[in-house]
Every structure is written in structure tokens, then in C-alpha cells.
Computed example of a mutant assay.
Amino acid sequence: MLWSVGRSDFQSADAATQVDGADTPILELAETPTAPASDLDDECRADRGDQNSGAGVIAAWNYAYYVRRDAVAARALATPNSSVVPAEQLQPFIDAVPVGTNYCVRTKALSEDVYLVDLSELRPDGVQRITQTVTTQQLDGKWFVDVFN
């Protein structure tokens, strides 16, 4: 799940990546008013998302991947035991996405924490669609991506 607009556009104070005592990155997203998750389900979106719902964290994951192009920020949105590879292994995948790629992600809740995700990558050489199931998990009041199938 990945798109890019330009890394420098997103290195602002609205999100900071920190590391906890176990060397697990933590992405701090500024609080912004958002529509309820049910209002965002099934809409094609490319916003920065949030950790207030499964759909919100899926949007945040894609934002970190495609817009920020930052594996540390993306990995910080995954559970510690997630199937997502460590940031240093994830960054080459992000770097392989052509500069100028845009994206749009559509989520459909299959259950409280499982979503059908339809990602459209708008690459300079054409459109690519990726459909997958994403399992999310709530930990300490925040939502994280867990498994991509």
C-alpha cells in the first residue's frame, strides 16, 4: 500500500516518530477532527488518517507509505508482532514506488477489525489496483494495522 507526493511536504510538526524503550517506533499524529469511521468506510481516500479506527489507521499507513515515503512512520502504525517487516526492510519497497505516484484507498469493514482494502496506485506509467484483507488491532486505545493478506 504505497503512494508518493514528495517527502519534504510531510516532514512537518504534525507527526513525530519516537522510539519506545523496546526500540519500537511510535508515530505521534496530531489530533484533528475526523468523520466517524462509518462515514469514511467505502470512500476512496488519500488523507493522513488517524488511529481512532481500523479504517483510520489503514489510511494513516498508506499516507506514511505513499506520501511521507517513510518506513519508520509506516512501521510505527503496525502492532509490535505484526506481519509487517521491520522499517529497514520496508524502506526499499517504498523507494521502489515511482516518484509522482498518487493513491486512493477504499476500505470496507468485514468485521470490527478486518477490512477489505482496495488500493488504487496512480503511477506515472498507469494505474495499478491491489485488493487485500487487512486485520487491525486496538492496543491501549489506539488502532494499528496487524496483518496484510
Rank of each mutant, 00 (worst) to 15 (best):
D20T: 03
T34G: 12
V72A: 09
S8C: 07
I58P: 03
Y65W: 07
A16P: 09
A30G: 09
I58T: 01
T17G: 01
D9L: 10
Q11P: 09
D20L: 07
R75P: 07
T34C: 05
Q11E: 13
D50R: 03
A46R: 08
W61P: 00
Q18Y: 13
A46Y: 11
P25D: 14
V57H: 02
G56W: 00
A74Y: 04
Y66V: 10
L40E: 02
G56M: 04
V57D: 02
S53P: 12
G6D: 12
I26W: 06
A73D: 00
W61K: 01
A37T: 05
E28W: 03
I26C: 08
V67K: 12
D23I: 10
D47Y: 04
E43H: 10
A30R: 10
E43R: 15
E31V: 09
P25Q: 04
D14W: 03
W61L: 00
E31I: 06
L40M: 12
A35L: 11
R68M: 09
V19A: 09
D47E: 15
D42S: 14
G6Y: 00
A74L: 14
P33I: 06
F10Y: 13
D50I: 01
A64H: 01
S12F: 04
R75T: 15
R75F: 02
A13P: 03
V57E: 14
W61E: 05
A13S: 12
T24E: 06
A59N: 08
R7M: 02
N62Q: 10
A35G: 14
A30S: 15
E28Y: 05
D47S: 15
N62M: 07
A30N: 12
E28P: 01
L29Q: 13
L29A: 03
R7I: 07
A71T: 01
E31H: 12
S53I: 00
D42H: 10
P36W: 01
A35K: 06
R7C: 01
S12N: 15
T24C: 11
P33Y: 05
T17N: 05
A35W: 03
A55H: 14
T34F: 06
A55I: 09
R69N: 10
D23V: 06
V72Y: 04
D20Q: 08
R75Q: 08
A60V: 15
